[in-house]
Design a binder for these strands. Structure first.
Length: 488
RNA sequence: GGCGGCAUAGCCAAGUGGUAAGGCAACGGCCUGCAAAGCCGAUAUUCACCGGUUCGAAUCCGGUUGCCGCCUCCA
């Protein structure tokens, strides 16, 4: 089986063949650390997290680099506003980024380099570009000359002459061509600065990715990822810099994720509809967010709404309810192998495993993959329905096997690997916290209802149930007693 | 103006030449005191519209309409 992935450069799906058999080098553009992460970051990180996990599960040794941009105009502006140093700003938001991403069960990349630690390499590339005549210095700035690099525009599919220069940004008269972009920026007095052959300054935005990817992955590497918006100008400029400097193909496969809308609107600070991960995770379980993000293909636009999150929550509940039911049916937890071991143990020897591979091999089609997950859930439930109390050994075996497949697939999607009790407790804690419900009061009501039911006073019992339902508390009368859950 | 994308049931969403996955919601059945949960069942003769290619198209080609993104910092 061959993995196919869509290459933004060729605009079609291609067979995935890494440069070195069995190994994958992957670079993904991370955040500029000047503010809290929003759901857009979450999508990008989840998408590449799943790609990373899947490639690993398929036996590749993946070297995954994701940078933090820690020197930039926005960071400087932020530092001035907060009255702290740029380093303090980036440290603060890197820490926050890690907290948010840990909450969303993201795996850490192999390396998370930052440009401030790679100034030497950056200056090195800029020097090569000047030597080769691709760049020029003006007043302490260094610019890349887009006209010198003849393939400029090949990723974004635009030609230099078609672009309307100065339509939205003022033309800088010091540039040879309005589309020339800055490689090195002279620093103003109170800005971060490093010595360079062109005077004290700091790196431009694009050059860091060329420098750090070359440093850790080589001058050519397999996969470069990021949000769709980075195609132009960021990735276009990276290609120009790297290929001009090193004279070889920069990246084999370009992978870009689509954008998130909020209630059908583009997310933007001016509209005031930026949703941070912290806010979302306060009301919704992180796994519901992951399921939502993986419920459509990574290149499609995705609309975030409360309804969508409720549906994703219902989906996660369904999976965990089944796992809980398996546990009580078999009297033992459904094992998680932990880490990537579970994911790596998926084989195409089972229908479920084979279908899952087919879906994911096809450009990481997580929407199809989640469908397979739900089909498996239904099969397990059906098996248990047919074997109420004492499942025959062969049935037990089958139930365990199918339930374990759910865990394994979940390991790659980054969901369904919690103890079901823990999942429902975590979920409940969110609801109780936002609704201020006292669990012991609920227990008291349930006891009252139990008494009423014992006395066959069903109207009183139903009144209690309705009262609780108004507060989004749902009762389930099970053989072993009544349990309660929050509706959302 | 240039480049690109999307239009599939009430909603979300797979499906890229062989006769429409999956989820949520709603409906009927089993179960239940009644519910809830779970399972079962029925739900798109049809994939924005108009032509064309083909034995055969949601899928390919041409056109029309509508929506969206990028061209500026942005995941």
């Amino acid at each position: 089986m061959t993995i196919k992935l869509y290459n933004s450069l060729s605009r079609q799906k291609e067979d995935f063949e890494p440069m070195e058999s069995g190994k994958v080098s992957m670079y993904v553009c991370g955040p500029t650390v000047y503010d809290s992460c929003h759901i857009g970051h979450a999508r990008s990180v989840v998408v590449f997290d799943v790609i990373y996990r899947y490639l690993s599960a398929r036996g590749y040794d993946v070297f995954y680099v994701r940078n933090f941009t820690d020197v930039d105009d926005k960071i400087i502006a932020r530092a001035n506003t907060l009255g702290i140093t740029c380093d303090e700003v980036s440290e603060r938001y890197i820490k926050e980024f890690h907290e948010d991403m840990d909450a969303l069960n993201m795996m850490r990349p192999t390396l998370e380099p930052r440009p401030t630690g790679h100034i030497e390499q950056i200056i090195g590339i800029i020097s090569i570009l000047i030597e080769k005549g691709y760049a020029y210095a003006v007043d302490g700035d260094v610019y890349f000359s887009v006209e010198k690099y003849h393939d400029y525009g090949k990723l974004s599919g635009r030609r230099l002459e078609d672009m309307v220069a100065g339509s939205r940004v003022e033309i800088d008269p010091r540039k040879n061509n309005p589309h020339d972009f800055v490689l090195w920026k002279a620093s103003k007095p109170d800005e971060p600065r490093w010595d360079s052959p062109w005077g004290p300054g700091r790196p431009g935005w694009h050059i860091e990715c060329s420098a750090m990817s070359a440093e850790y992955l080589g001058q050519t590497f397999d996969i470069h990822g990021g949000g769709k918006d980075l195609i132009f100008p960021h990735h276009e400029n990276e290609i120009a810099q790297s290929e001009a400097a090193f004279g070889k193909t920069f990246v084999k496969y370009w992978v870009h994720n689509g954008f998130i809308n909020i209630d059908h609107e583009k997310m933007s600070k001016s509209l005031g509809n930026f949703l941070t991960i912290k806010e979302i995770v306060k009301t919704w379980h992180p796994e519901a967010l992951r399921l939502f993000l993986l419920s459509s293909h990574y290149r499609s636009p995705l609309d975030y709404t409360d309804q969508a999150m409720q549906e994703a929550t219902a989906g996660m509940d369904r999976i965990y309810k089944t796992l809980a039911r398996v546990e009580s049916c078999l009297g033992a937890p459904v094992s998680t192998l932990g880490g990537m071991d579970g994911a790596r143990s998926i084989t195409d020897q089972t229908d479920t495993g084979r279908h899952f591979f087919e879906a994911m091999d096809d450009d990481f089609n997580t929407a199809r993959a989640t469908a397979i997950l739900f089909e498996t859930v239904r099969r397990v439930n059906r098996l248990m329905d047919a074997n109420e109390e004492n499942p025959a050994p062969s049935n037990r075996e089958q139930i365990v096997e199918e339930a374990t497949e759910i865990r394994k697939i979940g390991e790659i999607l980054g969901i369904a690997n919690l103890d079901p009790d823990v999942y429902f407790q975590q979920k409940q804690a969110r609801s109780l916290g936002s609704r201020q419900i006292d669990p012991s009061w609920v227990e008291k009501k349930i006891a009252e209802r139990k008494l009423a039911r014992k006395n066959k006073d069903f109207s009183a019992a139903d009144a209690i149930r309705d009262e609780l339902l108004d507060m989004d508390i749902v009762l389930e009368d099970r053989p072993e007693g009544t349990i309660w859950k929050m509706k959302h």
